[in-house]
Design a protein around this nucleic acid. Sequence first.
DNA 1: TGCAAACCCTGTAGCTACTATAAGGTCAAG
DNA 2: CTTGACCTTATAGTAGCTACAGGGTTTGCA
Lengths: 143, 143
Amino acid sequence: MQIGELAKRTGCESETIRYYEREGLLPAPARSSSGYRRYEQPHLEQLAFILHCRSLGMPLADIRLLAGFHQQPAAEPCDRVNALIDQQISRVHSQIEALQKLEIQLQQLRARCDSPHTLADCGILKTLDDAATGEACACHDAS
Amino acid sequence: MQIGELAKRTGCESETIRYYEREGLLPAPARSSSGYRRYEQPHLEQLAFILHCRSLGMPLADIRLLAGFHQQPAAEPCDRVNALIDQQISRVHSQIEALQKLEIQLQQLRARCDSPHTLADCGILKTLDDAATGEACACHDAS
DNA sequence: TGCAAACCCTGTAGCTACTATAAGGTCAAG
DNA sequence: CTTGACCTTATAGTAGCTACAGGGTTTGCA
C-alpha cells in the first residue's frame, strides 16, 4: 500500500509517517519504480505499535528502545521494559501533581476577581503586580 | 544593574532574560558605553511579573497580553484578564484529566508483568504487540 | 490525446520556551 | 599585563510534529 493508505488505516498523517522513518522508528520500505513508498502488513503493525506507545505518552526515544527489544534474543530478561514503563508512570504522576498544585493556585488567583471590575480594580492584575514587587500573593502563599 | 545581577535577583538565567527581550516581553533597557544592558527597578518588577505568570504555567503569548493591560486605560473592564485566567484553568484541568487516564492505562499495562520474565514472556511487550495487531489491549480497553 | 485532480517526493522552516555553544569584547583585581 | 569574570551577538539544538514550496506521477474523463 502507499503512504496515504497506511495513513488512513492508522489515523496517522503521512508526514508523521515519513518523520518516523527519518527518526529510525519505522524501517524504510521498498519503493515503486517512481519512488513511491510501498508498505506491507509488518509496517502497519510496527506503526500501530508506535502509535499505541505514543498514546501512552511515551517519548520516541523510549519507543525506539521498546521496539528494539523485538530484535533481541527472546530469552533476555524483560526488566528494562518494566523500567521504561515505570519511568513513564512516575513522569506522568509527577506531572499530575504539579498540575494539580497549579490548578489550586489559579483558582485562588481567579477568586480575586469574581465580579466585573475595571482594570484599575482588578484583583487578578493587582495580585500579579503585588507578586512582582515582592509581596505575598494569593496564588502562591495560600498553600 | 547588569544582566547578571538581574538574573541573580530573580533566579532567571541571563539568556532567558535576553530571550524575553527579543520576544518583546521585556522592554530593551539602556546600554552602557560598552554596550552592556543596564536595568532599573521597573525592569526587575516586569521580569518578576513575567516569572510569576510563568510559574502559573501561562504561555508567553498570554503573558504578553496580560502585561499589555498595564498600558491600557485603567477604566477598561477587566473581563479579558479573567478570560485568560479561565482559559489557563481549563487548559490545566484538561491536562490533568488526560494524564490521569494515562496513568490508569499505564498501571494496567504495568500489571501485565509483575514478576521477572524473559522478553518472550513479557506481558507488557505482548500487550503492546497485541494492540499493534488490532487486538484488545489491557491498557486501553479496560477503561 | 490533453488535462486536471489527487496522489507522491524531497527539503526546509515553523511551532514553544528555552538552553547551549562559538567567537568575541570589556572590566577590575593582582 | 594578564587572568578571570563578566558581557555581547548569532546560531543551533531540544520534542514531536506540522506546514509549506516546488516539483514528479498516476488516474480518470472528455
